[in-house]
Design a protein around this nucleic acid. Structure first.
Lengths: 257, 257
DNA sequence: CTATTTATAGTCGTACTGACCATTAAGGGA
DNA sequence: TCCCTTAATGGTCAGTACGACTATAAATAG
């Protein structure tokens, strides 16, 4: 911070990029926009935009989240700073430093074309083609972060609507991790963690028609999971197959995919 | 990323700030510089500086680390991006977005006055007065991050010299967490984790004169701790008393201390 | 009515952990 | 020299957590 007058500094453009996840149709989906201009015209990219002069990056991220999803109230959603990407050549047009955020949505609406998004859509995380800029890497980092936070926080309820069954909560874990979990054991663990979920007395939901009705739960007030709910060491292969996260090294520097 | 021509954007200055920790004299110490000009003249601040036009934030952080510590080779040191701080008013002079990094050093030298640091010094983490800008918050976030990563990674060896005893390794945990740990249990846990440490055959070190000589160990090649080594729920009070982390909310937005 | 599906309840053995106790090997002081 | 202190090391034991598994209940599909 010393030496404002000793070092010349170059102005940077500062943007936010959003990796917005949801669990729908039994799979993990990501909100993406299709680029309508060069560079990377026709490629999918993460939604995002410039940080305005009077707002913080977090404020900008929440504003963009509202614009891109079309949701009128995004104040209750989970939004978390992921990492900042600053490779000098990550945007061929100019020097852009981007602060990436991750958001989790329960049961999202189809995105409207509002904001500056040409055409925003929910796409399955698996089998995504190459994204624009370094967004492959950002998305992989975001996926890894979300998967890790499911282990030791109560974050999974952020993917669920206000009332949910334990089966739906388990599907969140299975979808993000790409692994199958033992249902009785999962249930035992969740219920043994105070404040993770609380049962709604007398309520039950028919599970898509078949099977015994499941009790409904609300998110509790706990935020941490002690002890954590660790994902199995090796993924025992689940129906919606999951590509293993390509970023084994979480360091954000050193490469621009 | 769409709409470069629709939104006007204001240029930002982009800097890096470093929270550099070491364990010395039985306490946690931080590398700080004393500000020689307004604002916050006379206050202590985290070392840092501008990101240069042709470098990434990570490159800038490593360059600043070498300049401020006076170390000739910082390539092997642990350096990790922490968070980006972007409150519009965090620097009264201009709009500065700062990418914060955390570094861990074993047995560091006294900092020379090189680089642009007026006077850099190692200060005890406990009992620090208010720092310049929002550096109190950055430092608290860094401390919390380091403490958390000790739980589920093998990061603790980054605080230790190439050869160390298990007692020294335990002191790292106790110093960062501010809690006392049971020595036999700690030993059992560390040795039961494959690749955490490996014994140097036949080597032993006299522990400051008194007591049985301790075996020497090297850092292993493992990076993760499965299962994790969780810190005790409540801190059972250790000699170097530790101020509980003032940032219970890890979100980096919303306030500028 | 029967098979199927899903939720829920419980069992059992292993692994891990926290709280201890015991032994070994060094130095310091009377 | 003998004994005490200090620190490393080795071990026990019980409680908890967890993975694998079996069993029962309550709904629908045919």
């Amino acid at each position: 911070m010393e030496g404002y007058d000793k070092y010349a500094f170059e102005p940077f453009a500062v943007t936010v990029d959003l990796a917005v996840f949801t669990v729908r149709a039994g799979g993990l989906q990501v909100l993406l926009i299709e680029r309508g201009q060069e560079p990377y015209i026709g490629h999918w990219a993460l939604p995002g935009g410039f940080v305005l002069p009077q707002e913080s990056a977090g404020t900008a991220a929440r504003r963009e989240l509202a614009e891109e999803t079309g949701l009128s109230d995004v104040s209750g959603l989970h939004l978390e700073q992921l990492c900042t990407y600053s490779e000098p050549d990550r945007d061929p047009r100019m020097r852009v430093v981007s602060v990436a955020y991750t958001a989790l949505l329960p049961d999202p609406p189809e995105p409207r074309g509002g904001g500056d998004a040409a055409s925003a859509r929910w796409l399955a995380y698996d089998g995504l083609g190459p994204l624009a800029f370094d967004h492959d890497r950002i998305l992989a980092d975001a996926h890894e972060r979300v998967g890790a936070k499911l282990e030791y926080t109560c974050l999974a309820t952020a993917f669920c609507p206000p009332e949910f069954t334990l089966g739906e909560l388990q599907q969140v874990y299975e979808t993000v991790w790409g692994t199958a979990l033992d249902r009785p054991n999962f249930r035992r663990k969740v219920l043994a963690t105070p404040g993770f979920v609380e049962q709604i007395p007398g309520a039950a939901r028919l599970t898509g028609g078949r099977g015994k009705p499941a009790a409904l739960y609300r998110a509790g007030d706990a935020t941490a999971l002690h002890p954590p709910l660790l994902r199995p060491a090796s993924a025992p292969a689940r129906p919606p197959s999951q590509s293993p996260s390509p970023s084994s090294n979480p360091s954000p520097e050193g490469r621009s995919s």
